[in-house]
Amino acid sequence: MSTQTAAEREMAALLIEALHLEDRDAATVDPSAPLFGDSESGWGLDSIDALEIALAIQQKYGVELKAENEATKRAFASLRTLSEYVAAQRGSAAH
């Protein structure tokens, strides 16, 4: 398991709250585990969750996501890619 950054931990807490996954601990989730698909090795999320995540991210960080966009599809691979994508979008919006 790889180590979390502070941003990844914050994103994990956001997902756990938005998706009612209180059985998970934000401090111990693997940031590189896949968000969608198989629930054995990853989060096992589906498109209902993706919609909830997009809303939570928009409300917390003001970043609007588009699923039709290839970069967004890649961003939803793991907690790490999602957290990096949102940080990059916030950075570009601020300049």
Partner: peptide
């Protein structure tokens, strides 16, 4: 033809 998911996709 698409199945837009997020609000911004639906608007587009």
């Amino acid at each position: 033809g698409a199945r837009p998911l997020f609000p911004a996709d639906v608007a587009d």
